[in-house]
């Protein structure tokens, strides 16, 4: 049953109807990145690639995660189709874990495509021989798990979860890594950046960073094992709590769906 739910959900999420917009976005991002790297003279450099991943790749992935994680259950509730799922002879935790795994797989697939697109655009075919690119593939998979799990949990707790996920992905994740002290530990993006092999200076700071440590300074000090453990822990805890929540909560089609 798990495999059927997983595969059918994956088929739905990876349908061209849903993927088209993301493929166009990736192509657009890659084209813009190419133009930018050409203009700045950083084309083919690790710094150029690292900067692109930092300011575009990881952000786009967070957006993808917000969209697909909220489709796991919150989307079904809003479409009112949840009723077909929760009245079938299948344990709710199995249903939730299979669907969330499908969402995370989708986020990871889109993330990996993006990494490869940016890698190819920057390094050409040499991208396949660049350890930094392959490391980013792993980082994106871990990030997909962490973002996917966290956004899933947010969507279990709150109505209009997409709005809160956006706030997290582009508000929290922008400002928290740049706040003074050790606050960057509380950001998924910091842990992802800490795991990459991007050269120093890849994550340029903005006005906020003047208040305290800059993102690149902060993430540099997080050990890799700590980041991997944190990202996996976020995934396991968030999906586990979501499963418990889903098992205990009542889900009926909402009349105020928007």
């Amino acid at each position: 049953m798990f495999s059927y739910v997983y595969l059918s959900t994956l088929r739905e999420f990876l349908s061209l109807r849903r993927l088209a917009i993301w493929l166009i976005a990736i192509l657009g991002v890659a084209a813009l990145g190419f133009a930018w790297l050409r203009l700045s003279g950083k084309l083919g450099t690790e710094l150029g690639y690292g900067t692109l991943m930092g300011i575009m790749g990881f952000r786009l992935m967070a957006l993808v995660a917000a969209v697909f994680s909220t489709a796991v259950i919150a989307g079904e509730v809003e479409q009112k189709t949840i009723v077909y799922l929760v009245t079938r002879p299948i344990l709710r935790p199995i249903l939730l874990s299979a669907r969330s795994l499908a969402a995370i797989s989708t986020i990871a697939v889109i993330g990996v495509v993006m990494v490869l697109a940016l890698g190819l655009m920057n390094f050409g075919v040499q991208a396949f021989k660049t350890p930094m690119v392959w490391r980013d593939v792993l980082v994106v998979i871990l990030g997909a798990m962490a973002y996917g799990g966290l956004f899933l949990f947010i969507s279990m707790l709150l109505n209009r979860a997409f709005l809160f996920c956006l706030l997290f992905a582009f508000g929290w994740e922008t400002f928290v890594p740049q706040m003074p002290g050790d606050l960057y530990y509380a950001s998924i993006l910091s842990h992802m950046q800490a795991l990459t092999l991007h050269p120093e200076g890849s994550y340029p700071s903005t006005a906020l960073s003047n208040l305290g440590s800059s993102a690149s300074e902060g993430v540099a000090v997080i050990p890799a094992w700590a980041s991997v453990t944190t990202l996996l822990a976020i995934f396991v805890v968030a999906v586990g709590l979501s499963a418990v929540w889903f098992q205990q909560s009542e889900y009926v089609p909402r009349e105020d769906a928007e």
């Binding site: 991002v29 990145g33 300011i55 582009f170």
Partner: peptide
């Protein structure tokens, strides 16, 4: 957000 990412890049 996609257009915003572009602005951040610039």
């Amino acid at each position: 957000m996609i257009t915003n990412i572009f602005t951040v890049m610039i």
